[in-house]
Computed example of a mutant assay.
Amino acid sequence: MNQNKQGINFTFEVFLLAANLRLAIIGIPPIVSKVQAFFHLTTALTGALTTIPLLCFGFLSVLTAPVIRRLGTKRTIEFALLMLAIANLLRTYVSWGMFAGTIFVGAGITMLNVSLPALIVERQPQDAGRLNGVYTASINIISAIVGGIAVPVANALGWQFTVQLFSVPAIIAFLATLLLPNKKSRRQSSAPSRPAGGSQTPIWKRGHVWMLALFMGLQSMIFYTIVAWLPNVLTSHGLSATTAGWLFSIFQIIGAPFAYLVPRATTKVANLQILMGSLLAGYLVGTGILIFFDATWLLILACLVLGITTASVFTFSLTMITTISQTPQEAGSVGGIVQSIGYLIASVGPTIFGVIKTTLGNWPETLIVMSIISVVNILVGFTLIQVIRKNQFVF
């Protein structure tokens, strides 16, 4: 009974932490015109508000592992949440505060990105698959809700107050984290045994870590490119901006249940191979519809398919961090390397595809390029699965 209760409490803690992983970033684009007008920002400076956090993810993720080793996972998370809460308050007064606050937002979320998988491995490794599902599903749900309500709240209460509200979940999560026991739970004996030699190789020399980093980077590039340009693609098919906005919200929220279910399919290699094949089909069907068809119902289908696919592939990436890690310390180090490389690749995606679109002149040819990258992404995934099987991470 006691263990079950602890599991419920920890699940809620994971939800609270995950709620902060995109909130302060996703909440800005819908109200960015208000921010731009208030601070008299140029288009380039306005675009930097969404680029800065991605660059923080890329450059700072690898530095979080040493912080975790020094402070411990719990204290690192507490520090990150406090930084996030203060940063959102700082963003609302002067232009330099907006940019400084955005840097701290990026740094705080970076620490949470790396620390949360490590916390899961540390506290409940036997339940990592389900908790990773809770983690990623929460991100999708919160992102969709914030994307939908940010403008109405900003119109009613002002954009400054709206941004300050982003601090509330960070404060709640901080208080909940204080209630977590300090005692670390060791990896249970029921966990699959790992080859003894694997732990002797430095993490940065392990080929499967770099392969996972490449996989994370390619899927992140595709996702953030879709986030940046999907409304434009939809309006190019004749949809109104309002309709495109609703479809964009559907794209974000539809993946939530699949983000929860995907980790349950990562315990056997056969399941992983089926998953990879399904992800490849999802990428090609979704982008194929956007390339060749204009019917509204098909565009809705494309948003549904792409939302499910991108959420599932992201969940797979995060789950593999805990799957190939033998200790919480390894999870932090592996997560740092994987997410640093992944988000550095992702940060250039929207810009590169914007240049491709400008060069080629329209969206179909640009989407064909993205389809090719998605195929490469899945091929890397199939190769990663074989390496994972060889190292007996799953059976």
Rank of each mutant, 00 (worst) to 15 (best):
S193P: 11
A228Y: 05
N232K: 11
G197N: 10
A196P: 01
P169K: 08
R194K: 15
I203P: 05
T177M: 14
S189T: 08
N182Q: 14
L214P: 00
Q188D: 09
G197E: 11
F215T: 01
R187T: 12
A173T: 10
P195K: 15
R194P: 02
W229H: 06
V233R: 01
H208C: 05
Q200G: 05
Q188I: 13
A213R: 03
K205G: 07
A228L: 03
K205D: 06
V227N: 10
A196I: 13
M216K: 03
L180R: 13
G197W: 14
S220V: 00
S189Q: 09
L178H: 13
A196D: 13
I171A: 13
F223N: 11
P202R: 03
L230N: 02
I172Q: 08
A176T: 12
K183I: 06
P192T: 11
K205Q: 13
Q200D: 09
L179E: 07
L179R: 14
W210S: 00
R187L: 12
A170Y: 13
L179F: 15
Q219P: 02
Q188G: 13
G207Q: 07
W229A: 01
P202L: 08
Q200M: 06
P202A: 11
P202W: 02
I172T: 04
M211I: 03
P169S: 15
S185L: 10
S199N: 14
L214T: 08
A191P: 07
W210A: 01
M216R: 00
W229Q: 06
S185M: 11
V233K: 04
I226Q: 04
K205H: 09
A176R: 12
G198D: 10
I172W: 09
I203T: 08
N182K: 14
L180D: 07
V209K: 00
V227F: 14
P192H: 13
I226C: 06
R194E: 08
K183R: 10
A228D: 05
F215E: 01
S193W: 07
S220T: 04
P192A: 15
I226R: 03
T201R: 07
L230I: 04
